[in-house]
Design a protein around this nucleic acid. Sequence first.
DNA 1: ACTGTTATTTGATCTCGATCAAGGCCAGAA
DNA 2: TTCTGGCCTTGATCGAGATCAAATAACAGT
Lengths: 249, 249
Amino acid sequence: MNLATKIVETNIRCGECPIRHRAVCAYCEAPDLVKLDAIKSYRTYKAGETITWAGERNDMIGSVVSGVASLSRTLPDGRRQMVGLLLPSDFVGRPGRDNSPYDVVAAHEVVMCQFRKKEFENLVKSTPALEHRLLDMTLDELDSAREWMLLLGRKTAREKIASLLAIIARRNAVLERKDVVDGLQFAVPLTREAMADYLGLTIETVSRQISALKKEGIIDLIDSRHVRVPDFAILLDEAGDDSDGGMPY
Amino acid sequence: MNLATKIVETNIRCGECPIRHRAVCAYCEAPDLVKLDAIKSYRTYKAGETITWAGERNDMIGSVVSGVASLSRTLPDGRRQMVGLLLPSDFVGRPGRDNSPYDVVAAHEVVMCQFRKKEFENLVKSTPALEHRLLDMTLDELDSAREWMLLLGRKTAREKIASLLAIIARRNAVLERKDVVDGLQFAVPLTREAMADYLGLTIETVSRQISALKKEGIIDLIDSRHVRVPDFAILLDEAGDDSDGGMPY
DNA sequence: ACTGTTATTTGATCTCGATCAAGGCCAGAA
DNA sequence: TTCTGGCCTTGATCGAGATCAAATAACAGT
């Protein structure tokens, strides 16, 4: 059984959490699940609300149930770089660390399932399988971060936009249990500013490149937040690589 | 006892490995160390030699004992981005994954301490503390990758160079158990090309920015691979942030 | 020392994306 | 409806870094 299968199966079994709650659900099978259930709680954050400030002590750990959040770092003079995009099923938190150097901000209304870190870590101590799962998820995140380094360091603006759209399309399809088919329409749950911060560009360049892709018929813009892709192969080609592999986001 | 202390202490106790052999030495204390010792082997790679090809099946796991290696990704058209710099003590490998999407190349002659992955993973299964340690190291790598995303996405060429020099200086100092003091001289174990691949620049820009820093007296160039920094505060200022925290590389 | 090779520096020019600036579009409030 | 403020788009211009080109330095093998 490969990993993807495992996630889906375990998600299906997790009755209480709405959907795709990887960090937890992957261990629905674990004997200590009952304890995990006992210490979890849900919390909703409004769009734009900061979930965690960089440097601030943070004693929650959890995962995204619905909505979109971003993880970002800021230079003293205000330049910002998003370093992670948190979509439903993504784990949030740093087991074993007291604070985070990242701002976590809700890009859309976000529902998080949270645990008090202390209790979660106690549970981890007594559940080796849970730690194994955390390691596996962290390795996925590391792969994503490195894929993103390639994008930031070496791709053109056009390729960056195409890559981002491809990633969002793929993630959306997984969440809705559809295939990524030609003609699929999906929401881009980010403002132009958030896209710029993610891609290491300015909002003007983001806007111009999206316009260009539209003019060339590579994407249809339903409105500024909804895209339809007539032919995914072409979009992937514009992304500059065949990186279908390995990316959880 | 904090983590840094622990690493040093355990390194000291690890008699057989030359130095700073984190992945192993952090568990010199573990009851199964004997088994770990039994399955490890050393191997030397010449400068320029490829240790692992991207995509290739790889059944070794280990850590760098001496030398420098790089982890990089390449686009189909040849554009390359380094996504990790592996210095002595760094762990190399992807527990639980069969292949790696990265090229691992020796930048200088590298000595690696290696384990057959299968045996290593069996050991991990029976040693929860080892898995805990792996998680901790992976989280460090993730922080490094994200720090690097900020550099790639938002820093100027000059800031990138200054950041890289600061990172190398800091790592060098740690390895030699010195403080990072003004006037410290150190080797830059990378060609201009490797620096360019790491920073998302061209070799010409790297060379020009280094020349500029030299002309302005921010660094002294002993030769193209050896640098002296008269005043670290100034160099760090040029790096654009006060990121002394959190970066293992 | 000589020779061929590769790494580095420096110069000249070009280009992509940033910056500066203006205008359009849409939702919510008065 | 009109006003207002937040996004988004588009245009004009600028500049940091890429690209093209050549000279110099380091270095290994003979």
